[in-house]
Nucleic acid binder design. Structure first.
Lengths: 245, 245
DNA sequence: CGGTCTGTTGTGCGGTGTACAATAAGCCCG
DNA sequence: CGGGCTTATTGTACACCGCACAACAGACCG
């Protein structure tokens, strides 16, 4: 509430209670709350410190850098994406993709963090890796094909949803106005399908939208994407194949 | 070369030749060159100005904001992704994905810009939209299914490659060291497949890598991903389906 | 020849991540 | 019980960022 540091307790030094004022969990939770409520741009070390009523440098006692803090936010967001292990491999993949999307939908403003920072960093979720490998092994994938399938699955899981919830430029309003007049500018001879479908696509389709999945979800497209990928995977050869690098 | 503004010409006012010193194309090209050569983090309005030997605010004469400049960089990177229109719809989609990936591979450090900023903004590439719609119409998709398929295709095109070329944290070295000792920490009882495959996966697979597609391309995984998606798309119902929103 | 347009130089503000010093309270050990 | 070590924080400082805005000089046009 106060202007800049807003210290609940004044003066330097260790707090008097014996217990710390801050904690890593509290910092991560506050950061995520800021992202959820005010958008990704409102998140910074300093804004988290402001919200917690401490100096920015106090944050650094619990986390070594902005990047690591982001990594910790990601692991919180991606909690509980693993589906029930009892499912058939195809249903399991469908559930995995859906649960991943649901996790992002719960914190849409955090989506770019994951897409940009690579799924990796920080704590490797070994259970996720093993589970994907296990289900693909169930499906019959072996050797280099198994690893390629693993990468294809992770890429597919993260890829679509990251796009769906991608951040928009801050001048979304001008983008909207731009697209409002767009149908009139289409040359029906050169772009007949676009001319015919623009009414349904403006504001709802990639490249022609000004809002992201938080307000304009692409549920139908996502379902089709998952279905195409999973059923397509079933029709692929499952052995051999070159390694990636 | 000079310290801060490094003006080739001194003093204020309009240049004497009659021709401007700068141009939008030059600014975009310089920005992209900086990104390619020194990484995305080295790109800023101020760094571009430094490279051009002008004041940062001179950049604003040609572009209204950082976001718009980024949008212009994106359109340059994504030039020439459209494949030959004569191809069969499935081959055309394969070619589209491959050409998109090749474009990103030419400027890997720019990958996060596209993934984050949404494919949209700035100049809508109507030819791309129309071409995708046309090929999916060729495939028999109609109505809501056509639009869903369009979104699935764009999401698939951008999604995987964005992940493959996602930026890594600046402390990649410590990540590498961390992952070097990773195989020894795997409990072979709890994670048997990971224990067996970690040797092939460390450094080359999502979540277990410390480099991105610029140095560790996932060619095999990408091929499998494309193949699964395209052949899967062929087996989907092509009419009806609910709209997304 | 005066005014307006153009394309710069320059100044300034509020923001950022984070390195580093200062400091005070709790804790442990002799 | 007292001195030093550890802990958790306040403060200061620096180099960077995007960008708003003023100043201004040359070109161009009536």
């Amino acid at each position: 509430m106060a202007k800049t540091p807003a210290p609940a307790r004044k003066g330097r030094g260790r707090p008097q209670n014996g217990a710390p004022d801050l904690s890593k969990a509290q910092i991560v939770a506050t950061a995520l709350r800021l992202i959820d409520e005010k958008g990704l741009e409102a998140f910074s070390i300093r804004s988290v410190a402001r919200a917690l009523g401490c100096y920015p440098t106090a944050i650094y006692w619990y986390t070594p850098s902005r990047h690591v803090l982001i990594a910790e936010i990601i692991t919180v967001v991606l909690r509980d994406v693993l589906p029930d292990a009892g499912l058939d491999w195809q249903d399991w993949l469908r559930a995995l993709f859906t649960r991943y999307r649901a996790a992002i939908a719960r914190h849409p403003n955090a989506a770019p963090l994951i897409g940009v920072t690579l799924v990796s960093n920080a704590s490797v979720d070994v259970d996720l890796v093993e589970a994907v490998l296990a289900k693909l092994h169930d499906a019959g994938f072996r050797g280099a094909s198994l690893i390629n399938a693993y990468n294809a699955v992770i890429g597919a899981m993260v890829g679509f949803t990251t796009q769906e919830f991608a951040m928009l430029p801050p001048d979304a309003e001008s983008l909207r106005e731009d697209l409002a007049g767009f149908p009139d500018r289409i040359d029906a001879n050169r772009h007949p399908l676009l001319a015919q479908l623009s009414g349904q696509m403006i504001g709802a389709a990639f490249i022609l939208r000004w809002q992201n999945g938080a307000t304009q979800p692409m549920t139908g497209a996502f379902a089709m994407y998952v279905e195409a990928f999973v059923t397509g995977l079933d029709r692929l050869p499952r052995e051999g194949g070159a390694a990636s690098s």
